[in-house]
Amino acid sequence: MNDPKTDVETRLRRLRLAPLPDELKRRVMAAASLAPRASWRDRAWYSRAWRVAAACTLLAVVVVDRWSAGAFRTGGEATVSPAAAERTWVTAGVADMGVPAEMAARLTARAEFVPLTAAETSDDARAAMR
């Protein structure tokens, strides 16, 4: 008898499993009842190409929607702070008075900006100041 400690694997390799019985196929074919034919909706649902196309379409719709809402706009219409707008307005007013540009800049820098009401910043107020 072979030494079991050394050649179990060799002995295993010599084994031949029982073959598949021929009549099993007949039994399987007789017992199996196939489900009804798949509809085009099922085919579409289980199709990977369809799922990818649907996901891409959804993504495109979201991107176009965001684009039209201005979510991707950078720069362009930069918002101007009220203080900067007032500074520009004062500079322009001083320049209109005929003050040299350098002095106008100094005067603007020294000017004490007090928050104004909407009425004061209107065109009428500017005209009254002139």
């Binding site: 399987v28 009842s33 196939l34 489900a35 798949a38």
Partner: peptide, 14 residues
């Protein structure tokens, strides 16, 4: 076991 697999698979449908 083999018969069970094929019978079950046939009933899977979609």
């Amino acid at each position: 076991l083999v018969q069970g697999v094929f019978v079950k698979l046939a009933g899977f449908g979609v």
